[in-house]
Design a protein around this nucleic acid. Structure first.
Length: 757
DNA sequence: AGCACGCCGACT
DNA sequence: GTCGGCGTGCTC
């Protein structure tokens, strides 16, 4: 008899290991690695679903083992590569095996259970597509008023009346209604059968229909592009970096590489940092290949996701475009993974399952014998380091496609501005350049990395600063809803005219965000139209796509925004880019703040001069001599890299070490602090078994920079090490130990985290 | 996680 | 004398 080693589908660290079960004779042909089975588990032998990892021959004594009860479906849901991927993330990012496994298949394929007519528990794979529904008032009597409608409903049916009143305003999604009223489904259905309401199937979050597709042939490549394709073909490395300045035609190279892979009957994955910011790219891929492609991101409906999943699994679709979650697709014969804008931090998943897309893509490519292509104008330091050292194939595109030079950049020292009496946010240089550009009917992009109107409120008498009730964070004033908002927990508070500490009425609002800047710009340039682009103004569905279209059509002269405006947009008429305050990212307490600043400035500068007119960039800062700023001004990636890599080497930061962050959070600060220290002690003891000197690489427990968020207190342990394996093993062990099981704090491990605080 | 077992306190 | 609190330990 065979033994199956399975993972139990119960997301708990203490069950994140293999369990052995006997395979009954009649199931032998169906129980294979990747199959989902139902097994008895625990004292009560409760049935639970599990995933088969492997089969083995029984040891001499198998009397203790229980038997598999049945299979969920008679084919494996995960193939060999996918199983390996689960194991990889389990080891490298401390994910739960089943967390990754569950992320591989769409919601509708997740296992459900129900009792059949005999009261027997049955497992099945729910095929029902969790569609969203839109509810609206029935159009039976078009001339009816709300009052007339309500008069036909019982006066004590308060919920029904409230719903009708709400829907009278506008149709509402079912999910929104159920979130608001408990058990509203029955009410809605009865209102529907009474003829008051109707519901419509809604396709959630679909990208705009690009209109009829005209398949475009491949344009002629430049010599430099052609050369890259040849080198790539010949290159022995698995991973390749294309370092190409903004507007150098990297996309065209990717498309050619994909074409070559498709010709070999392989599948391609094209990853972008954020789907909603890259409609232009998706349209280009579609237009080029003229065949069905899958577009995957975390906001597509379950139904759509299931459909794409099936088509990818059967190789009906061979081109997949998507955000990072697309890396967990059921690839068949994968030949190429393209990761565009490789440096973007959206590629790091800091939710479960945690992973970083680049290293995961490399692992998946290795399993499939595929290649990985990373592209960026501002590669991350780690990537560039490996490329320079020959571990990656290294290709460059130093020139812009349109033959234009890189835009001319000017750094403005805001201290000098201040000394000469200009206290506004626009330096005289930037103001003059803007006037010039507007006069020539050219467009402008302004980047300010701070949203809201005023960024904080304080009392001029006692110095009290208004903070969020549940976080140690100052609150930002938002003019549009005339409220204070916490940017950490989204809580809001009314505007305060009186100091809660001393009663003084001298409350001062200070610090400029995008909202206020928009107002000021409108005053300085009354004839110009300012379009604001930040998470506040772009909340509505399709808002970004609409804004991009409006700006392309010239409906606005100035595009003002946060990080969003630095992403790969391509507006031909933009000739001036202004960075309003480069210091905001520069002073961020993180070892990568220089890297981020350089990337942001270079990327946003790259939006200028993409058409046939030359671009100009003005960078405002209080630290004009900082190397991130001076090298960004000169478009000198290499120079910046040299300085940055020296700094990293000296301080043993990545890529010369690996950082591991172990976070603790809980309601009682003392307890969190105590458990964090205890964990540190356990970890030190564990890692000492390998090498006592390693103890010093785990920094002692610290308070987070912002200790309290959402009323939870946060502490952390940071590990900076060259001995990754020793720490991975030690953490793995401590995480599963008896001692930490008693902990009340939530613990999470984040390897190479995006932010440290 | 989810469940059984076990060892204490406060009830009929 | 018993019911039930939750701390402790285990799940093939």
């Amino acid at each position: 008899m065979k033994i199956a080693q399975v993972y139990i589908n119960q997301l708990n660290i203490h069950l994140d290991r293999l369990f052995d079960y006997l395979v009954p004779k009649h199931l032998e042909s169906q129980v294979i690695p990747g199959s989902r089975v139902v097994v008895p588990f625990g004292f009560g032998n409760k049935s639970i679903d599990a995933l088969v990892w492997d089969l083995k021959s029984p040891p001499s004594d198998s009397s203790k083992l229980k038997s598999i009860l049945g299979v969920v479906e008679h084919f494996p849901v995960l193939d060999h590569q996918q199983l390996k991927t689960c194991r990889f993330l389990q080891q490298v990012h401390h994910s739960l095996f089943m967390d990754v496994a569950n992320a591989f298949y769409p919601g509708p394929i997740q296992i459900r259970k129900h009792k059949d007519s005999n009261g027997v528990l049955r497992y099945y794979v729910g095929q029902k597509d969790r569609e969203s529904w839109l509810w609206k008032i029935s159009q039976r009597n078009p001339n009816q008023t709300l009052e007339q409608l309500l008069s036909t409903v019982r006066s004590n049916a308060t919920v029904q009346r409230e719903i009708l009143t709400l829907l009278w305003e506008s149709p509402i999604e079912e999910a929104v209604l159920t979130a608001r009223f408990r058990g509203v489904k029955k009410t809605l259905e009865s209102l529907r059968s009474a003829g008051f309401l109707e519901k419509h199937r809604m396709k959630s979050m679909e990208l705009e229909d690009p209109g009829p597709l005209e398949v475009q042939g491949a344009p002629r490549l430049t010599e430099a592009q052609q050369q890259i394709l040849e080198d790539f073909e010949k290159g022995f490395q698995q991973t390749h970096l294309i370092h190409g300045v903004t507007g150098s035609g990297k996309t065209e190279v990717y498309l050619h590489m994909m074409e070559a892979a498709l010709k070999k009957d392989k599948t391609c994955l094209y990853l972008v940092p954020e789907i909603s910011l890259t409609p232009q790219t998706i349209h280009r891929v579609k237009a080029r290949f003229g065949q069905e492609i899958a577009v995957i991101h975390s906001r597509i409906s379950d139904g759509e996701r299931l459909e794409q999943y099936k088509k990818i699994a059967t190789k009906e679709i061979r081109i997949i475009v998507g955000a990072r979650s697309a890396i967990l697709s059921p690839f068949q014969d994968l030949g190429l993974i393209v990761i565009d804008e490789e440096h973007e931090n959206t590629y790091k998943s800091s939710n479960r399952p945690r992973f970083d897309t680049v290293s995961l893509a490399q692992e998946i490519a290795r399993l499939h014998g595929a290649k990985v292509v990373l592209g960026s104008a501002t590669p991350s330091i780690g990537t560039y380091y490996l490329a320079k050292n020959g571990q990656y194939g290294f290709h460059r595109l130093p020139d812009r496609m349109n033959g234009q030079d890189m835009p001319a950049s000017l750094v403005v020292d805001m201290r000098v501005e201040l000394q000469s009496g200009n206290r506004s946010f626009l330096s005289r240089t930037l103001y003059a350049s803007m006037r010039e550009a507007l006069k020539r009917k050219e467009q402008i992009i302004l980047f300010l990395n701070k949203r809201g109107y005023f960024s904080y409120v304080f009392c001029r008498d006692c110095g009290y600063v208004v903070k969020c009730k549940q976080c140690d964070v100052t609150m930002t004033y938002h003019g549009e809803d005339n409220r204070l908002e916490c940017h950490y927990c989204k809580a809001t508070a009314p505007v305060q005219h009186q100091c809660p500490a001393c009663g003084s009425r001298k409350m001062k609002y200070s610090g400029t965000g995008t909202e206020r800047m928009q107002n000021m710009l409108q005053k300085y340039f009354p004839h110009a139209t300012v379009l604001r682009m930040d998470t506040d103004s772009m909340k509505k569905k399709d808002a970004i796509a609409d804004a991009v279209e409006d700006f392309t059509l010239g409906k606005a002269d100035i595009l003002l925004g946060t990080q969003m405006v630095t992403k790969g947009f391509d507006f031909e008429n933009v000739t001036l880019v202004g960075v309003l305050l480069a210091d905001l990212t520069l002073n961020f307490p993180d070892y990568r703040s220089s890297e981020r600043t350089f990337q942001l400035i270079t990327q946003v500068a790259g939006r200028a001069g993409r058409g046939n007119k030359k671009g100009n960039v003005v960078i405002q800062t209080y630290e004009p001599d900082h190397y991130a700023i001076t090298h960004a001004q000169q478009h000198d990636y290499e120079g910046f890299y040299e300085k940055e890599v020296a700094y990293r080497k000296m301080n043993r930061y990545p890529p010369f070490s690996t950082l591991m962050y172990i976070g603790f959070s809980g309601n009682d600060e003392k307890e969190v602090a105590k458990e964090c220290s205890e964990y540190h002690r356990l970890l030190s003891a564990e890692v000492t078994k390998t090498d006592p000197s390693l103890v010093f690489e785990a920094y002692p427990p610290s308070k987070s920079n912002i200790v309290r968020v959402n009323n939870k207190y946060r502490y952390y342990i940071l590990i900076k090490t060259e001995h990754v394996d020793a720490f991975q093993e030690a953490i793995h062990h401590v995480q599963r130990s008896k001692e930490t099981k008693q902990f009340k704090s939530t613990i999470f491990v984040d390897v190479n985290p995006n932010f440290i605080f």
